[in-house]
Amino acid sequence: MIGRHPAPTLVEIAIEPKSKADQQKLGAVLAKLAAEDPSFRFSTDAESGQTIIKGTDELHLDTKIDILKRTYKVEANIGTPQVAYLERISRPVTVEYTHKRRLGPKGEFASVKIVAEPLPPGSGFEFVNGIVGGAVPKEYIPGVEKGLDSVLSSGVLAGFPVVDLKVSLVDGKYHDVDSSELAFEIAARMALREALQMGGATLFEPIMKVEVLAPQDCAAWVIRDLGSRHAHMQEQTQQDDMVAVSALAPLAAMLGYHNTVPAIGQGRVTFTMQFHHYAPVSLPDEPPPFRPAIGMRA
Rank of each mutant, 00 (worst) to 15 (best):
Ile2Lys: 13
Ala14Pro: 03
Lys20Glu: 14
Gln23Phe: 10
Gln24His: 11
Lys25Ser: 13
Lys25His: 13
Ala28Thr: 14
Val29Thr: 13
Val29Phe: 03
Pro38Gly: 07
Phe40Gln: 03
Phe42Gly: 02
Ala46Pro: 09
Ala46Met: 02
Thr51Lys: 08
Ile52Tyr: 02
Gly55Cys: 06
Thr56His: 01
Thr56Asp: 01
Leu59Gln: 11
Leu59Asn: 12
His60Val: 08
His60Gly: 05
His60Pro: 09
Leu61Pro: 05
Thr63Cys: 10
Lys69Gln: 14
Lys69Val: 07
Val83Glu: 07
Val83Met: 07
Leu86Cys: 05
Glu87Asp: 02
Arg88Phe: 01
Arg88Tyr: 02
Ile89Tyr: 00
Val93Thr: 14
Val93Ile: 08
Glu96Tyr: 08
Lys100Gln: 14
Arg102Thr: 12
Arg102Tyr: 01
Leu103Glu: 15
Pro105Gly: 13
Lys106Ser: 11
Gly107Ile: 04
Lys113Val: 14
Ile114Gly: 07
Val115Gln: 15
Ala116Cys: 10
Glu117Trp: 09
Pro118Lys: 04
Pro120Ile: 06
Gly122Phe: 02
Ser123Tyr: 08
Gly124Met: 05
Gly130Ala: 07
Val132Glu: 14
Gly134His: 09
Gly134Thr: 09
Ala135Ile: 01
Tyr140Met: 02
Tyr140Ala: 01
Ile141Cys: 07
Lys146Gln: 15
Leu148Asn: 10
Leu152Asn: 04
Leu152Glu: 04
Gly155Val: 03
Val156Pro: 00
Leu157Ala: 10
Leu157His: 03
Phe160Pro: 00
Pro161Asn: 11
Asp164His: 06
Lys166Gln: 14
Lys166Ala: 08
Ser168Trp: 05
Ser168Gly: 06
His175Ser: 02
Asp176Gly: 12
Ser180Val: 05
Ser180His: 10
Phe184His: 02
Phe184Met: 05
Ile186His: 01
Ala187Arg: 08
Arg189Asp: 00
Arg193Trp: 01
Arg193Ala: 00
Ala195Thr: 04
Leu196Ala: 02
Gln197Thr: 10
Gly199Leu: 00
Gly200Arg: 05
Glu205Met: 04
Glu205Ile: 01
Lys209Tyr: 14
Val212Asp: 00
Val212Leu: 07
Ala214Ile: 05
Pro215Phe: 02
Pro215Ala: 03
Gln216Asn: 09
Asp217Thr: 04
Ala220Tyr: 08
His230Tyr: 10
Ala231Phe: 08
His232Met: 11
Gln234Leu: 15
Asp240Pro: 02
Ala244Ser: 15
Val245Leu: 13
Ser246Glu: 15
Ser246Gly: 13
Leu255Met: 13
Leu255Tyr: 09
His258Ala: 14
His258Phe: 12
Asn259Gly: 06
Pro262Gln: 05
Ile264Asp: 00
Gln266Thr: 11
His276Cys: 04
His277Gln: 13
Ser282Leu: 10
Pro284Arg: 04
Pro287Cys: 11
Arg291Ile: 03
Pro292Glu: 03
Ala293His: 15
Met296Asp: 04
Arg297Cys: 09
